[in-house]
Simulated assay, not measured.
Amino acid sequence: MEYNDDYAICEKTYATLRLYPGTKDPHAVTKLLGIQPTFTQRLGDPLSSRRQARINGWFLKTEHLIDSLDSRRHIDWLLDQVEPITDRFFALRQAGCKADISCFWQSLSGHGGPTISPQQSRRLAELNLELWFDVYLGGSEEVDNATPFKIVG
């Protein structure tokens, strides 16, 4: 698979590995996995002046880390982080931790979309990870027109 880092129809993309560990503290997830998250949230943490976190969360995000307009590169990077620690990742999942990969994808001109390779589908399935896209069509002026969808591996 060849990446297309200058994907002409994409304005912006990044991916986030999202772990929701139930009552387990997000810092315990960091310790168990040995991976530093981009950010965490604890139940009750302020998210904005009007909102609080309703659940514990641990997040590893490729935004500002991977310089590519090809979502496949972002997804592969996240999978590359998890696969070497599959045993610890599955231990978290067996303890009730929910996990998925969320991919932000913004169209430059209002058409097109991301691509997933068969190899990525296999890797996602082996980790029992859902992948879903938060897609924005119409360029940066119209990011309110989201069309989210899920791909289940």
Score class of each variant (00 low, 15 high):
residue 79 L to M: 04
residue 131 L to D: 10
residue 144 D to Y: 14
residue 102 S to Y: 11
residue 87 D to W: 00
residue 72 R to Y: 03
residue 19 L to R: 08
residue 50 R to S: 14
residue 25 D to C: 08
residue 36 Q to C: 04
residue 8 A to L: 11
residue 148 P to N: 03
residue 144 D to L: 12
residue 79 L to D: 03
residue 56 N to H: 03
residue 32 L to P: 00
residue 32 L to R: 10
residue 68 S to C: 05
residue 47 L to N: 11
residue 126 E to S: 14
residue 65 L to E: 02
residue 128 N to D: 12
residue 85 I to T: 05
residue 83 E to R: 13
residue 128 N to P: 01
residue 117 S to R: 02
residue 84 P to T: 12
residue 137 L to T: 13
residue 36 Q to M: 06
residue 8 A to Q: 14
residue 103 C to Q: 10
residue 127 L to P: 04
residue 79 L to G: 04
residue 15 A to H: 01
residue 11 E to Q: 13
residue 71 S to L: 05
residue 131 L to G: 13
residue 94 Q to N: 13
residue 79 L to W: 02
residue 24 K to V: 09
residue 76 D to N: 15
residue 64 H to P: 00
residue 53 A to S: 12
residue 67 D to G: 01
residue 136 Y to L: 12
residue 144 D to V: 13
residue 96 G to M: 05
residue 30 T to K: 10
residue 58 W to I: 02
residue 91 A to W: 03
residue 88 R to W: 01
residue 90 F to Q: 14
residue 120 Q to E: 15
residue 49 S to Y: 09
residue 48 S to C: 10
residue 63 E to D: 10
residue 87 D to H: 06
residue 5 D to N: 12
residue 81 Q to H: 06
residue 112 G to K: 08
residue 148 P to S: 03
residue 103 C to A: 15
residue 121 S to E: 13
residue 97 C to I: 09
residue 2 E to T: 09
residue 53 A to V: 06
residue 44 G to C: 03
residue 108 L to E: 14
residue 149 F to L: 08
residue 151 I to G: 02
residue 19 L to C: 09
residue 92 L to V: 10
residue 113 G to P: 04
residue 84 P to Y: 13
residue 136 Y to V: 09
residue 115 T to W: 07
residue 89 F to I: 05
residue 75 I to G: 11
residue 150 K to I: 14
residue 54 R to Y: 10
residue 22 G to I: 02
residue 60 L to D: 00
residue 124 L to V: 11
residue 51 R to M: 12
residue 70 D to L: 01
residue 7 Y to A: 08
residue 87 D to S: 12
residue 114 P to F: 10
residue 28 A to T: 07
residue 24 K to Y: 04
residue 49 S to L: 11
residue 69 L to I: 04
residue 94 Q to M: 07
residue 122 R to S: 15
residue 75 I to Q: 09
residue 65 L to Y: 00
residue 86 T to W: 02
residue 139 G to F: 06
residue 121 S to Y: 07
residue 106 Q to Y: 02
residue 41 Q to I: 11
residue 34 G to S: 13
residue 92 L to D: 11
residue 103 C to G: 05
residue 80 D to I: 03
residue 140 S to M: 07
residue 131 L to R: 11
residue 73 R to S: 08
residue 150 K to C: 14
residue 136 Y to M: 14
residue 114 P to K: 08
residue 136 Y to C: 15
residue 101 I to M: 11
residue 88 R to V: 08
residue 38 T to N: 01
residue 30 T to H: 08
residue 135 V to C: 15
residue 28 A to G: 02
residue 9 I to W: 07
